[in-house]
Design a binder for these strands. Structure first.
Length: 252
DNA sequence: CCATTAAATTCAA
DNA sequence: TTGAATTTAATGG
C-alpha cells in the first residue's frame, strides 16, 4: 500500500522576497533562536545566517575540519557520529528540527571531533562564529538558554558513558529504542524515525547482527514489532522496567 | 565474521 | 503504477 501525501506547497508564500528559510517564517518553537527572536534588538543577526540544503545521506560536517560556526536544523533529522578505534562508527546522538549541531567545537576547539550526516533531506541554518558571538554577548536570555542546552547535553553524554560501560547488549538496545521513542515519538505505532539496524547498533555500541538477534527475541516476547525498517514498541512499560531496574544500582 | 537467501526500498520507464 | 535493480534484513555456518 502506498501512502499518498498531498502537500499544499505554495499557499503561504506571499512575496517571493520573503525568504522561506528566514527565522520569521520558521516555526520550530524549540529552536533557541526562534524562541528568543523578539529579544534580538537588531535583525542583522538572523539576516546574516546562511541556509544550506543537504540530500539524504550527505555529510555536512567532517571530522577534523575547522570550526567556523554553528549549525541549526531547520528541517529534517541528522546523525552525529565519531569514528572509533577500528574505523567503527559510534553514533553520538540523533538530532531533529530546531537542534544545534557542532556546538561542542564552538569557542574553544578549533576542529570538529565529530561528523554529521543527514538522515533525510535536511535544511540547515548556519551562523558564523563572529555573528553568533555578538548575539550571545548582547543577549543574556539567549545565552542562558544556550547554557541550559549545554548542561543538558553534558548530562546526557555522561549517562551514555554509564550505559555503554555497564549495561548488557540487550539493555543498551532497549535503551536505544526508548531514546528514539522519547525523542521522536511514534507514528501509526511505529517509531517516527527510520533507522537501519546498523544505525541502532552504532548508537548502542554493538554490532548489526546483535541488534537483529535481540530484535527478533524482543519480537518473540511480544515487546516490539517490526515491519522492514520500521520498529514499533508494543509494551513500553516492560521495556522501561528492564532498564530502570538496572538504573537503581547504577545511580548509587 | 562471512555467505546465502528473503524481504524491502528505490528508481525509472 | 509496475517490476527490475539495488540495498537491507535475517539466519546459519
Amino acid at each position: 500500500m502506498q501512502k499518498i501525501k498531498k502537500k499544499p506547497i505554495t499557499n503561504n508564500l506571499r512575496k517571493e522576497s520573503l525568504n522561506p528559510y528566514s527565522c520569521a517564517a520558521c516555526n520550530n518553537e524549540n529552536c533557541l533562536i526562534k524562541r528568543n527572536l523578539k529579544s534580538f534588538s537588531n535583525s542583522k543577526f538572523t539576516e546574516n545566517k546562511n541556509t544550506l540544503k543537504c540530500k539524504k545521506g550527505q555529510q555536512f560536517i567532517i571530522e577534523g575540519a575547522p570550526v567556523n560556526g554553528l549549525f541549526f536544523i531547520l528541517k529534517g533529522t541528522v546523525k552525529v557520529f565519531r569514528t572509533g578505534i577500528n574505523g567503527r562508527e559510534q553514533i553520538v546522538r540523533f538530532a531533529k528540527e530546531g537542534e544545534i549541531i557542532g556546538h561542542r567545537g564552538f569557542g574553544t576547539e578549533e576542529y570538529y571531533s565529530i561528523g554529521a550526516i543527514a538522515l533525510q533531506d535536511v535544511v540547515l541554518c548556519y551562523f558564523s562564529k563572529d555573528n553568533l558571538q555578538e548575539a550571545l554577548i548582547e543577549n543574556p536570555k539567549f545565552t542562558y538558554d544556550m547554557m541550559l542546552f549545554y548542561a543538558n547535553e553534558l548530562n546526557r553524554s555522561e549517562s551514555k558513558v554509564k550505559s555503554i560501560s555497564q549495561m548488557t547488549v540487550r539493555e543498551r538496545i532497549i535503551d536505544t529504542l526508548l531514546y528514539i521513542h522519547r525523542k521522536f515519538g511514534d507514528l501509526n505505532g511505529f517509531l517516527n524515525l527510520p533507522l537501519s539496524r546498523k544505525e541502532y547498533a552504532d548508537y548502542a555500541g554493538t554490532t548489526e547482527e546483535q541488534v537483529i538477534r535481540i530484535f527478533s527475541i524482543l519480537k518473540k516476547e511480544g515487546l516490539i514489532l517490526s515491519k522492514g525498517k520500521k520498529i514499533g514498541i508494543i509494551d513500553i512499560q516492560t521495556l522501561r522496567n528492564e532498564i530502570n531496574e538496572h538504573n537503581y544500582y547504577l545511580d548509587s
